[in-house]
Amino acid sequence: MTTLHAAMRDRLLVCERDPDGDRAATERLAGYDIECVACSPDAPDRVFVGTFEDGLHRSTDGGDSFERVDEGVAGDAVTSVAVDPHDPDVVYAGTEPSRVYRSTDGGAAWTHLDGLVDLPSEPEWYFPPRPDTHHVRWLEVDPFDPDRLYVGIEAGALVLSDDGGETWRERPPGSRRDNHSLATHPDREGRVYAAAGDGYAVSDDGGESWNHPQEGLRHRYCWSVVPDPGDPDRVLVSAASGARTAHAASRAESYVYRRAGDGPWERLDGRGLPTGEGVVRAVLATTGEPGTVYAATNRGLFRSRDFGDAWTRLGVAWDEELERLTPRGLAAV
């Protein structure tokens, strides 16, 4: 049974399958300004939710209840969380202003991994709505090397660490500046995918250099990226023409694209997943099942079992209030 944790802007939806095949959605953390959600198949009852004004929250019962767990984390804005695929007790959190923290006890206590804002390009980092600051939008742990970290700064840099965050390197050749999400693949060492405000990028050498296959990708403000668990050469991204048409339902126009191998991008219209006018950029998530991908937009929760050829709307009640909200994250376990 797959449980979905959909982080909407002001609530978390915990969605479990009912015996009749529909999904019962339970609201948690109502009224919180939610930024991100993360969990691990190796510890599926442990769920982390980052908020902008109320720090980091953890559930140890699959989302039934939450407690604040950010001892050692400075400030109240937790903008990204990642669970180490090698050890679910190792968790990373990113904040605004940009800092990275690590926990080795499942989130009970945290240690600051300093040095990030000492990088030479830091004076150029900025988040346009709040130009005097910036934040860690995404954290990714390499599935082949637990000491290798990928950090996306919104906006300003892709940052790498080879030693678990003890030291940092920035802006490898070809990397994007405005990274929104990153992904790796457990079957392809060195493969890293990036969805960024300045386009899509892919690396085959662990982020040391990047290429930009853009043919067919007509909307290049990219937000969410996932590879097919069964094929590292197939990838989906959600995209819009810019930030203005990505995030607010009142003016949104966004799409989902798919790429296979070295071919061009294909826009997935008319396949059961709402796209286009009025639809905010999707957040995408996978489990380990080949071909299976989940999507959340302001129009509901969706699943494809053939990596985007056809989508089914999941049986979760979705009212007009939810249609006005923008999803911030999606985790499936």
Rank of each mutant, 00 (worst) to 15 (best):
C15W: 03
T184P: 00
T297S: 15
L314R: 07
T111D: 14
F66N: 10
V225N: 03
D163E: 03
P327W: 02
D187I: 01
L149E: 00
T245N: 11
A24Y: 06
T167M: 05
A252E: 00
H134N: 10
D22E: 08
S59K: 11
Y92F: 12
V91G: 07
E208Y: 06
L139I: 07
H112D: 09
L139H: 03
V49W: 04
L182M: 10
G329A: 13
V192C: 03
E53D: 15
W138K: 07
Y32C: 10
G230T: 06
E170I: 02
T287L: 12
S98N: 09
W110E: 01
S250V: 08
D319M: 13
L12E: 15
A109M: 01
D42A: 08
E166K: 06
H247N: 02
L113K: 03
E96K: 05
N298C: 10
F127W: 12
E253T: 07
G115H: 04
L314T: 06
R99I: 01
A201H: 00
V81K: 00
V202Q: 09
P131M: 02
V81D: 00
T26A: 14
L284F: 12
G190M: 10
D87C: 07
G308T: 11
P120L: 07
L13C: 14
G288Q: 07
H180Q: 13
R299C: 12
P44Q: 04
L4E: 01
A201S: 13
D204H: 09
W223E: 05
D147V: 02
V235F: 00
Y150V: 11
G272V: 10
P290W: 06
W168L: 02
R46V: 12
E323G: 13
D178Q: 09
E189V: 05
L149A: 01
R11E: 15
C15S: 14
H180D: 06
E289L: 07
P229L: 03
D204N: 07
R9K: 14
V293H: 08
H185N: 01
T184A: 01
Y257R: 05
D142H: 09
V202L: 09
R9E: 15
D233G: 10
E323H: 07
D204L: 03
S209R: 13
L13Q: 14
V256R: 05
V141C: 13
A195I: 04
E215N: 13
T111A: 12
